[in-house]
């Protein structure tokens, strides 16, 4: 094992692991059962799970077709469109939240029509949380699915169409089963990102227990006056993250 690689590698590993170990060491284990059985924690956890799942569902419905469009069709400005799709990946989430307010807020570019035509306002609602999370998480799914699509052999689809299947049937019956693992991995990534979403959520949807206060918001606010509760909440999120990794173990943990 070459030392110049081993030393930085171990340093990097330690750097990634130490904060997590500190979380476990400093966890208020004795008061933990009490902390975790409080109604507020479960409310925040339930809301987080529901919103992250809804955001993932929404991402699947529009994200998979978007990935297909980027991977399988040619149109002018495709590279630009792809760059736009990945923009939320690099955008600070708070900026995303502000942008969402300007678009879907009560006075937003689209939001004002939603309000005056349908009486729908999105900020400060659970739907707002789902939208904020979708905005931040969907690019993960699109990128993952697009990568899988590019790696998948298009000749199967071509064969299906030459045998008389329409392009949509070929997509449904041939492409989808072919890229299912990629879609699953993308969905898990998007779900995990949605679960941890903080900036866009607090900016766009505000913070109200049971309606828009997800786990990360609860952790942040608990840290101000009750650090023990914040650590307990963090442990729950850590456990969920480990569960996600376990679900992905075939792809990453056993990567050869």
């Amino acid at each position: 094992m070459p030392i110049p690689l081993l030393v930085p590698a171990l340093l990097g590993l330690a750097f990634l692991l130490l904060p997590l170990i500190a979380l476990l060491v400093r966890a208020p284990w004795r008061s933990l059962p009490e902390q975790l059985t409080s109604a507020e924690v479960w409310e925040a956890l339930r809301l987080s799970l529901v919103c992250a799942t809804a955001a993932t569902g929404l991402s699947l419905v529009v994200g998979v077709p978007l990935a297909w469009l980027l991977a399988r069709t040619r149109f002018p400005g495709r590279g630009f469109v792809r760059a736009l799709v990945t923009l939320p990946l690099v955008l600070p989430p708070v900026v995303g939240g502000v942008a969402l307010l300007l678009a879907f807020g009560r006075n937003g570019v689209i939001g004002q029509w939603l309000d005056s035509w349908f009486g729908i306002t999105l900020p400060f609602t659970t739907t707002g949380v789902v939208l904020a999370e979708t905005f931040v998480a969907m690019p993960f799914l699109v990128i993952s699915v697009e990568g899988t699509l590019r790696a998948a052999d298009p000749r199967y689809e071509e064969a299906a169409t030459t045998l008389g299947a329409s392009r949509f049937t070929a997509f449904r019956r041939v492409t989808l089963p072919l890229i299912a693992p990629g879609i699953a991995a993308g969905a898990v990534l998007a779900w995990a990102r949605a679960l941890g979403e903080f900036g866009a959520t607090i900016t766009f949807a505000g913070n109200f227990p049971g309606r828009t206060q997800t786990m990360p918001l609860a952790v942040y606010l608990a840290l101000q006056n009750d650090p023990a509760a914040a650590i307990a909440l963090s442990l729950v999120l850590l456990a969920v993250s480990i569960a996600v990794l376990a679900a992905l173990r075939d792809r990453w943990m056993t990567a050869s």
Binding site: L101, G105, R106, N107, P123, F124, I202, T203, A205, G206, N207, F208, P209, T212, Y220, L221
Partner: peptide
């Protein structure tokens, strides 16, 4: 019962400035 408990006074004010609240 408010629609949101904001994390500091400026973000509460911003919600009014943007006419969201």
């Amino acid at each position: 019962t408010p629609v949101s408990y904001e994390q500091d006074v400026k973000s509460a004010l911003t919600k009014v400035e943007l006419k969201e609240a």
